[in-house]
Amino acid sequence: MRPFEYIRPASVAEAVGVLNQRGEDAFVLGGGSAAVVMLRLGVVRPELVVDLGGIEEMRGLQRNGGLRIGALASIRSLELDDGVRAAYPLLAEAASQVANVRVRNVATVGGAVAYGEPQTDTPTALTASGAVVRIAGVSGERSVPLDGFYVGPYETVLEQGEIVAGIDVPEQQPHTGGAHVKFTVGSPENKPVANASALVTVDPSSGACTAARVVMGAAGPVPVVANVASGLVGGEASAERIKEVAAAAAEEADPIEDLRGPEWYKRRILRIVVERALTCALQRART
């Protein structure tokens, strides 16, 4: 690996300070599961690596109404945390499907969000959950909804010197169900052909759908919000209706041909994962 300087700041202020000072020479390291590979391959060649891992204030998961996720919270903690599993099963389900357990132990939620890989499961699920990214910079903190945080593949609204400090997820309405479905070729640890998160709220008396949100991963340059999902609201969301919505959602996507399949196939899989996610989410909302 090429040589670089390394610092491990103890606070957000210290981190953004040094990032601001060193500009493009600096490279942010979260959990490292993607960053260290990039360093090894020479994809990035920074003079300075700023390891955020020592910043206590960016750790942990807090529930007070909503869910406050420290950027350094591991994907695995999202997967295993009892509170998250109870109140945000969609997030826990998505987290449990990311890569392998070694990666999930190390990779951070903040890192997964900031990296901007369009097929990763966590941003899909967070976007579906209405998450807001807390961004720290030298001039303070700003918040940007995750739906709007991504500009393109591996590209976000983060400015030079800014870091993801955390992610806030709003409290879920009662009678809400969520589900995340990932589809891979071969082992489930592999990168997805496509994934989808669905979050559905129902009126328990009528069973009618009062809110529905679907986000698709590996479906375009950024997580793709399926606008058509709102069409479920007000109706009873029958299996037939879900099929139609899933088919329309897949048409909203803009997948590219890659090693995991041609465009037409990815659209087909998007239709299937959206249908499965919606069906499962609805079932969970009703029980």
């Binding site: 590979v37 891979t184 070729v185 071969g186 082992s187 489930p188 640890e189 592999n190 990168k191 090693l259």
Partner: peptide
């Protein structure tokens, strides 16, 4: 060659 790295070249696992 576009998939010389294992990240893009999935192998059989205990799951398959």
């Amino acid at each position: 060659l576009i998939n010389a790295a294992l990240l893009d070249y999935p192998l059989p696992t205990m799951e398959t």
